[in-house]
Design a protein around this nucleic acid. Structure first.
Lengths: 196, 196
DNA sequence: ACGACAAGTAAGCAACTGCTTACTATCCGA
DNA sequence: TCGGATAGTAAGCAGTTGCTTACTTGTCGT
């Protein structure tokens, strides 16, 4: 009777692909990997769900594609010394529309998922952690970087995912202020053999 | 033919209850709330899975019972000033058999689960966070406590759950050393109106 | 114009989930 | 001793999941 829906989507493979990618990015950020169903993704993309498997093979591969597709922008943007603050701000912001923020929150919401763990480990180890580690010349730079990253993610978890107050209600500026005051303690440039 | 199973468990309601509680504590710590099935819990407890619902009503109520049952020991044990180190050590230890450590790791592995979020929020807010907040007399003590707790949990996540190296391979002592050096920055006793 | 191939669709499978139900065996007080 | 309450059991329901399959429809080279 009343058809408010096109009887069939126009043939446009790249459009469907990116629509799926976009919907997946949003939903993974909202609910995490485990709580997101392929049916939801397909529905939000307004695409038949069988196409999800045609284009990406499996839910996990889709997740991998979302991660790698979005996180590059954040990593290679600006002066390296600003990276901690940038990461932290991305983790704190909940409703930004940019892909990078989506990715980080999706990551937070999927941290405890066995099926996503390998991907996340690679993503964190290969990108964020390495970049942070390059900020200091301490001998155990990578461990220090992990500790900083762990702090950012922990704060992001309790704030955006768990929504625990008062952290969830605090203004991002205050949180950033506190954290960035402590970070140089771990990521310092002139540890022992330093010259400025 | 070959029955290697007792035809029926001896009647012992309290034993079954604690067996379920124990098995649930272990499994929630190993896999988290979402990845643990009631069938697994019942199987490890060697108890018919219908009894799980007889004794606890639902999976969520079982989870709540596990949390509240175990976390008290950790909280009221010793001098308050040692609490941060204690919490941190509990989060870092992976294979301890004590209930408190189980609880914290279970908590970490369930952080991103919608169904467990409310319980965890209460548990964190009502217990750990309050106790940490009492360590400082800063006006925003609770926020500072949340930031410290977030760091501990973030480190626990990346180490025990995500198993990211080098953090996962680092010795607990080193990690504790780093963290406890920075914590007084947030939780100090003599902020402005302090007298020792 | 037409046929082959690719894009899109509807339906459903098989496994798994939390939870329930209808039942049987056991215990304890009368 | 016997009968009701209770602990324990087997089976299964209804819903959801990731993924597949058999099919229809649109597009493009020839």
């Amino acid at each position: 009777m009343c058809e408010d829906r096109q009887p069939r989507r126009k043939r446009d493979p790249t459009a469907t692909r990116t629509a799926l990618l976009r919907a997946a990015g949003e939903l993974f950020a909202e609910r995490g990997f485990g709580q997101t169903t392929v049916r939801e993704v397909a529905a939000r993309a307004e695409v038949n769900q069988a196409l999800l498997f045609r284009y990406f093979g499996s839910k996990q591969e889709l997740f991998a594609e979302v991660l790698s597709h979005n996180s590059e922008a954040l990593l290679r943007s600006e002066p390296a010394a600003e990276l901690p603050r940038r990461i932290l701000e991305s983790v704190l912001s909940e409703h930004t529309r940019s892909g990078a923020e989506h990715t980080l929150v999706a990551l937070l919401r999927s941290l405890s998922d066995e099926r996503a763990a390998t991907l996340l480990r690679d993503e964190l180890g290969g990108s964020y952690s390495d970049r942070l580690a390059s900020l200091t010349d301490a001998p155990d730079a990578e461990l220090r970087a992990d500790l900083v990253l762990a702090w950012f993610f922990g704060v992001g978890m309790m704030r955006s995912v768990l929504r625990k107050s008062p952290l969830a209600e605090a203004s991002p500026e205050v949180v950033v202020e506190y954290l960035m005051r402590a970070v140089p303690l771990l990521l310092e440039r002139n540890a022992s053999s330093g010259e400025e």
